[in-house]
Design a binder for these strands. Structure first.
Length: 929
RNA sequence: ACUCGGGUGGUGGAACUGGUAGACACGCAGGACUUAAAAUCCUGUGCUCCGCAACGAGCGUGUGGGUUCAACUCCCAUCCCGAGUACCA
């Protein structure tokens, strides 16, 4: 009986489906465990071998946890709203709903082929109205909430409204103060406009990243180097009315929350950098001969006496009010120049530019007059849009001063060499008035105190992170449940949700930069007013999907409190690093809001995050002699004028090209001729493969993509070797977290292992070979060593070494000719998470009924691993020279005595006594001469 | 430039708290079975040297130094690769 993996896998996949093996209940006496994959965007290309890496890892862990007695939630769904589907729709004339439907079907069939244990009854799709009605509902919650700074949490906006009515807005908030009577005197529009400044989801005119080619606004993290992340189109700044999420109010909690979760250091670091918290002070400088004050932000108030000039962002509103008559023309010209420069220009050439405004600020501590400049290196959007420049301590300020010949004041003595700025905090201050003699890092506090005491500034914390843009001028996304009446946003009643996306035939942009929805008059003009025509961004639906899996069919709420209380946080979340600052920050924020509003009982969504590495493609090249249909082997390519062409990796064995397959690959290569590695030449006529005539391809590691012909379809590997082999091979390739190029070559080794395992049970000739004999101690030792190692490896996500452990175990059992059920049965349970199909099959062949997933996990008998004595290496001065057999219960003194009697040790000692003998229990003995 | 990872055989990678570096697998070489192939099995495989051989010696984890009886592992310096951020005051 041989290992017929195709039959076995089909049989069990069907069996699992029929008996609902993977259905999960929300009521169980078992402890819960929630394993989640970042759900995929169902693109038209289907899965390639890179995608399932994380899914296999999570599947292994889920099955392992289930065997260990947990009630495991392991769902899957689709992030099915988004730009590519819409782009594809425009290109092919199909509706995104149709293509999405088709793509999801392909994805699901591919996933099922690998044998994942998803509970498909919990599947979610973000583009389903039954799903996005809740995305819209949560949006309304965001819209109807504000961040209460005192309580440090989100509260219903009705509370704020009551406060405005009764006591007004006190001084010190981000909005100008007003009294209750003032508030009550405002008309509705004014009141609503003010409330808009507090809502967590709010609308305002703002500079946005506008991408002309895509016809939409992009979030900061969707823009890379001034180009769109998708497609690489230029992005410009544009003023538009947009929706935003007030994520900046959560900056501190997003930062603090990182302390409570188990993410990798680099992941936490990326989030910290993105949030970009900095502590400093804001202070006002009087402008000479002018009533204006210039407010700057600095993290180094200790350097206040080293300020040689001020720099204001060119867009700053103060510029026009303070520029002197003589400098006005130059300032206007410079501002025009800056406006003409796009982000791409700025990135490409960073040169020092600027213009003196003619105005002077007064240093409040010594009355010195400081020239005020404008320059594009100061950003309008950060801090106050103005800085105090300290050239001896800041590199950019220094270069600016040098470029414009501004004299530099040295306040750090020898620490400043005049050649470059020194940003140290360890210097003793000089030329610094009341700060003289203080260490800079101590002077920061002193300076802030003085600033606050003078009433010219306050301590201030700033963040790099901006509020998140939340609207897109696109069709394929969630419509906003908002209508506009006389410039006031009106939320839709919750009972009217979902607000369904209308069907359109044309996806072209609407007028004035609006989205395609603006073209549908009957939709835009609703009885309640004019509908919002933009849609929500891709991250809306993915910010809360992990909650919906807990209670996927609830029609009363997005997720009942009892369900979210039971499943609680995602215990293990697996996905790529590319979502470090996008999805992960947004979903963390949404979770905090839902927690603040009392919908859920936890404020961090993901307890532990594991980032799987990217599997890159390993491309193969053939070299065509320019202008001919002749191809040169890699080793000879330098002798000709060649043009490298990507060749399908699936017709290359390692690096050796299958010449016949190549001729059949594309019609243009049908009569290709070859110059082989040994220099021999082939004729175009078909000829049998001659052994020594090898065509060697070039190799390069690149991103996996169809156009590079380096994609490998998991379906084909499953057909050829079986899903179990495929799963184990993906794991065997290396650590899950590591990126690595795909190489199909080694898959044979894993396949051989599974066949060898099969032969422990069945022999091709003899048939059944497993038996019911009692296992020997030696055999049980092999088993229990494996139990121990597999458990350790699985727990710490070291799946590659776990696969090795299985191989060693099977090799040892085969060598020992051990075919005993007592041992094999336990081994199968260990193997189940990794190779579920073959484990199920052999489990039932051994005469067990029911799924192996309901078997009890083997218990380690540690006593079986203990040896009575052990061979220890003896090293002399760190170098191993001999071995000695020692009983395990010996103490240091007894070991020393035995070691000294050892003939090799005596030879080295030459009659002298050793300095000391080190005995590391269970490891080794070292003699120091 | 800054921050975070990472450099181990021909290749992918093991070595968990410092304790016999190179597990396991691929590849390669040789052999058995076979008319032959496939499949399977066995042996060898870091480098260098000595020898017919058993055996033995030396060198080896990017590079240079240090701590230690003992370093892939810890410390200092330096080079290279990858990821992220990019005028954030």
């Amino acid at each position: 009986m041989e290992y017929k993996f195709t039959d076995i896998e089909q049989k069990w996949q069907q069996q699992w489906k029929n008996s609902n093996t993977y259905r999960v209940s929300n009521t169980s006496s078992k402890p819960k465990y929630y394993v989640l994959d970042m759900f995929p965007y169902p693109s038209g290309a289907g899965l390639h071998v890179g995608h399932p890496l994380g899914y296999i890892a999570s599947d292994i862990y889920s099955r392992y946890k289930r065997l260990k007695g947990f009630n495991v939630l392991h769902p899957m769904g689709f992030d099915s709203f988004g730009l590519p589907a819409e782009q594809y729709a425009i290109e092919t004339g199909q509706h995104p709903a149709e293509t999405t439907q088709k793509n999801i079907a392909t994805f699901k069939s591919q996933l099922d082929k690998i044998g994942f244990c998803y509970d498909w009854e919990r599947e979610v799709r973000t583009s389903d109205p039954s799903y996005y009605r809740w995305t819209q509902k949560i949006f309304l919650d965001l819209f109807n909430s504000y961040y209460d700074k005192a309580a440090n949490k989100a509260m219903p906006i009705s509370q704020l409204l009551a406060q405005f009515k009764n006591t007004g807005n006190p001084a010190g908030t981000h909005y100008a103060p007003f009294t209750a009577s003032q508030w009550n005197g405002f008309d509705n529009k004014t009141q609503q406009d003010i409330l808009m400044h507090f809502r967590l989801a709010f609308s305002k005119y703002g500079e946005v990243n506008w991408c002309e080619a895509l016809g939409t606004v992009l979030a900061n993290d969707e823009v890379v180097n001034g180009l769109s992340e998708r497609g690489g189109h230029p992005v410009v700044k544009k003023k538009m009315r947009q929706w935003y999420l007030r994520i900046t109010d959560y900056a501190d909690r997003l930062l603090q929350g990182l302390e409570t979760v188990d993410f990798s250091d680099s992941m936490k670091d990326m989030q910290r950098n993105w949030i970009g918290r900095s502590e400093g002070a804001e202070m006002d400088f009087d402008i000479k001969d002018n009533h204006q004050k210039l407010r700057v932000y600095t993290t180094r108030p200790d350097t206040i006496f080293g300020v040689d000039f001020m720099v204001v962002a060119p867009e700053h509103e103060l510029v026009n009010q303070i520029k002197s008559a003589s400098q006005a023309a130059a300032v206007d010209e410079y501002v025009a120049y800056v406006k003409s420069r796009s982000d791409v220009d700025r990135m490409a050439e960073k040169k020092i530019t600027g213009c003196f405004t003619g105005a002077y600020a007064i240093n409040p501590f010594n009355g010195v007059e400081i020239p005020v400049w404008i320059s594009e290196y100061v950003l309008a959007g950060y801090g106050t849009g103005a800085i105090m420049a300290v050239p001896c301590g800041d590199e950019r300020d220094f270069k600016f001063a040098q470029h414009f010949n501004i004299p530099i004041t040295n306040i750090i003595g020898q620490h400043f060499n005049g050649q470059e700025a020194n940003p140290t905090k360890e210097a003793i201050l000089e030329n610094s008035g009341f700060l003289n003699g203080l260490l800079m890092k101590d002077a920061i506090g002193t300076a802030v105190a003085a600033i606050e005491q003078k009433g010219i500034g306050i301590k201030k914390i700033n963040y790099k992170m901006r509020d998140a843009g939340f609207s897109r001028q696109r069709y394929w996304g969630e419509p906003f449940p908002i209508t506009w009446q006389d410039g006031v946003a009106q939320p839709l009643q919750q009972t009217n949700l979902p607000l369904q996306l209308p069907h359109v035939d044309k996806y072209g942009p609407g007028p004035e930069g609006e989205g395609p929805l603006a073209n549908i008059a009957e939709w835009v003009n609703s009885p309640e007013g004019r509908r919002e025509t933009s849609t929500m961004p891709g991250y809306a639906g993915s910010s809360w999907y992990f909650l919906r899996y807990m209670d996927p069919t609830n029609t009363e709420t997005f997720c009942s409190r009892s369900a979210s209380d039971y499943w609680n946080q995602v215990d293990l979340y697996i996905g790529g690093t590319e979502h470090a600052v996008g999805h992960l920050l947004y979903s963390r924020m949404w979770t905090k809001v839902l927690y603040d509003l009392g919908y859920i009982g936890f404020d961090e969504p993901f307890k532990r995050l594991v980032n799987q590495g990217m599997i890159q493609g390993s491309s193969r090249f053939v070299y065509r002699i320019a202008g001919t249909n002749q191809f040169v082997s890699a080793g000879k390519k330098n002798e000709y004028d060649v043009q490298p062409l990507h060749v399908d990796v699936n017709i290359v064995d390692g690096v050796q090209l299958d010449v016949e397959a190549f001729r059949k690959w594309k019609p243009e290569f049908a009569d290709a001729e070859f110059v082989f590695e040994d220099g021999t030449f082939s004729l175009s006529c078909s000829m049998g493969a001659v052994k020594d005539m090898q065509y060697i391809c070039g190799v390069e590691t690149e991103k996996m993509s169809k156009s590079k012909y380096n994609t490998v379809n998991p379906n084909e590997l499953c057909d050829k070797y079986g899903a179990d082999t495929f799963r184990m091979y993906e794991m065997f390739l290396g650590p899950v977290e590591q990126s690595k190029p795909w190489d199909t070559k080694g898959i044979e080794g894993v396949h051989r292992f599974l066949r060898k395992l099969w032969r422990l049970f069945f022999d091709e000739l003899k048939g059944r070979v497993w038996n019911n004999d009692a296992a020997t101690d030696a055999e049980l030792k092999i088993l229990h060593r494996t139990i121990k190692k597999i458990e350790e490896d699985t727990e710490r996500f070291s799946f590659n070494t776990a696969v090795s452990t299985f191989m060693i175990c099977v090799n040892e059992l085969a060598d020992a000719k051990c075919h005993k059920k007592e041992v094999l049965q336990q081994l199968l349970i260990l193997l189940t998470p990794y190779a579920p199909h073959i484990a199920e099959e052999l489990w039932s062949q051994l005469g067990n009924s029911g799924s192996i997933l309901d078997a009890s996990y083997p218990v380690l008998n540690a006593a079986l691993l203990v040896e009575s004595s052990k061979a220890y290496p003896i090293s002399i001065n760190g170098k191993v020279r001999a071995n000695i057999n020692l009983a395990l219960d010996l103490d240091q003194a007894a070991v020393e005595q035995l070691v000294l009697q050892h003939e090799v040790v005596q030879k080295w000692l030459e009659g002298k006594a050793p300095k000391k003998i080190i005995y590391v229990k269970n490891k080794m003995v070292n003699v120091v001469l």
